[in-house]
């Protein structure tokens, strides 16, 4: 049994496998299928200062080896989260982390401040990369200046581990990563979804109500892996890699490319037990290669 534990800033994780926001509900949705305490962390659904109804149906279209979504951050708001969801998840024996989103800097700050007060939420993931909302979201994450402004503002009120989730819909993701590092982020997670589109040729209409949406699934993995590799060369803070991971081999690829930890997203929909299988697979891989600790593998490309 190798040492699977890793640290992201002050955040201690029993292993590097986490589940991605928007794909794992609040964790409880998966409790029938797996032991939630077996994974390193859970990022719950994107949370905003006020409730959001999200976008109109249809919000999803399957594409070859992937899917497009345009959920649009549907959630009941941070107060509902604190009063009705947090009590049910706070004792789950893993890192329960909140993905924080918003339309304005003030929204992000207010939301982060409220979550800062919750004892059993050791980290937030600042979502400056959601492609499915008209205001905020990705608009902040596509310029180094915008990204830095929001991180600086949140850093003032948030004193636990601050992870910033980056958008791949940029010319150079390393510029954004550097900007948020300088602004005080403890880690970056990448990638969020790639902006995409699909059309129903018979009806001559887009398949999503919003026309465009976020592409995820195995089809995005090579892009995500490349961006993790580039970002690892550009920043010193830890990277959480995600994008199309479906098995332990994919996870090890991300770690070799420079990710300290990984998130599993879309594939939770296909195999609700995949995150546990990836933990086991990484462990067996390390034992087989006689590697003592998973952290030795980070960026260890030959």
């Amino acid at each position: 049994m190798a040492n699977l534990s890793i640290n992201i800033g002050a955040l201690k994780c029993k292993n590097p496998v986490m589940t991605a926001s928007g794909t794992f509900g609040y964790g409880l949705e998966y409790a029938d299928f797996m032991d939630l305490s077996k994974i390193g962390g859970i990022f719950v659904k994107g949370t905003t200062i006020t409730p959001r109804e999200g976008n109109d149906y249809p919000r999803m279209a399957e594409t070859p080896s992937g899917m497009l979504n345009a959920v649009g951050l549907q959630n009941k708001g941070v107060d509902y989260f604190i009063n009705y969801i947090y009590p049910d998840i706070k004792d789950i024996d893993t890192n329960m982390m909140v993905n924080v989103s918003g339309s304005t800097i003030e929204d992000y700050v207010a939301c982060a401040e409220k979550i800062n007060a919750l004892d059993n939420i050791p980290a937030i993931e600042l979502n400056i990369s959601c492609p499915n909302v008209k205001q905020g979201g990705m608009a902040f994450g596509t310029s180094p200046h915008g990204a830095a402004e929001i991180v600086k503002a949140v850093r003032k009120v948030y004193n636990k581990t601050l992870i910033v989730k980056l958008s791949p819909n940029v010319t150079d993701i390393t510029e954004i990563a550097r900007a948020v590092e300088t602004a005080g982020a403890d880690a970056v997670s990448l990638i969020n979804t790639l902006l995409g589109m699909a059309i129903d040729v018979e009806r001559r209409t887009p398949l999503l109500s919003t026309v465009t949406g976020g592409l995820s699934g195995p089809c995005v993995k090579p892009v995500a892996l490349r961006m993790v590799y580039q970002t690892h060369k550009a920043v010193k803070i830890p990277i959480i890699g995600l994008g199309g991971i479906t098995n332990w081999q994919d996870a090890v690829e991300f770690i070799l490319a420079g990710a300290t930890a990984i998130q599993i997203g879309t594939y939770n929909f296909i195999d609700p037990t995949i995150s546990v299988k990836v933990v086991e697979g990484i462990n067996e891989y390390l034992d087989r290669h006689k590697i003592q600790s998973v952290s030795e593998l980070v960026g260890a490309l030959g």
């Binding site: 794992f24 509900g25 949705e29 998966y30 999200g54 919000r59 999803m60 939770n268 929909f269 609700p272």
Partner: peptide
């Protein structure tokens, strides 16, 4: 997509 209330697509 998920069938278990996680993805909020349906």
């Amino acid at each position: 997509a998920c069938g278990i209330g996680a993805c909020l697509c349906c």
